[in-house]
Amino acid sequence: MVKTVVSVGLPVDERLQIRKQVIEPEGYDGKGKRICIVTGTHGDELEGQYVCYELGRRVREQPECLRGSVEIYPSLNPLGMDSITRGIPMFDLDMNRIFPGSEEGPVPEYVASRIIKDIEGADLCIDIHASNIFLREIPQVRMSEMTAQNLLPFARRLNIDYVWVHGAATVLEATLAHSLNTIGVPTLVVEMGVGMRITTEYGCQLVDGIFCVMKDMGIWTGETIEPKKPIISTDGQVGFVNANHSGIFIPQVDHWDSIHQGEVIGEILNPLEGKVEEVLHAPCDGMVFTLREYPIVNSGSLIARVLGGDYH
């Protein structure tokens, strides 16, 4: 059943509407657990769209296996998604920096507050992101140190490849995940793929994992896979490679490749002068879990993140 989470009139003959699909067993008594899958906070991140479709399809295929409530929110920023806009159109705001929002505040904050109110009380929320248009990510869950104890048991079962436990940053307190974790809804942030594209194999991998978690929670009784064991790391194990010149970046490694310290990750080229501006090297032995996708770079552009260790 499609429900409207929040609806706001737009100036000319249209409404901004955030909708969710609620799938429950026939004659559901409401006593089961509730999982929310949310995505589309950033209008240029599309990987979660396929996850929403595939999750809904598989649940409907075996309705007899459902014992709880599955709520799918494909787009928290529908205007952004429709207009290939990362932020909220008209406000040029990053929607993931305005939570928990405010009922009395400006429209974006009002919308944010309604989203929080709607998800409140869920037993688990999975917030799916897709990096941005510049970087490609392997399927991973990110969480702050403060939430790791609570969230790691879920993340280990989500069939993702990597869990990055990062330090807390005050600015991240304005994210959807932080707000939900604060009010007692365990919320996992998934990052995978790249902006403006859909990688169906990543989507299927995550959906397999969501079923594993739903089975653990007693929401699903159907067959599930044995999920992958993710690599779990902290900030200290992650090496960053940033450009120091502008130009076009041509990679010499593949995403997810193992690499040795000092090995060439790629070059920044100057198309006008026909010369190499910079050769970028791996900062440590490890695995390239983030790799630049968009070729044009400035000084500072993130090129790669390398997870230190031996992953051959």
Partner: peptide, 8 residues
């Protein structure tokens, strides 16, 4: 010149 519903 335009307002959404709920605009401050």
């Amino acid at each position: 010149p335009l307002v959404m519903e709920g605009t401050i």
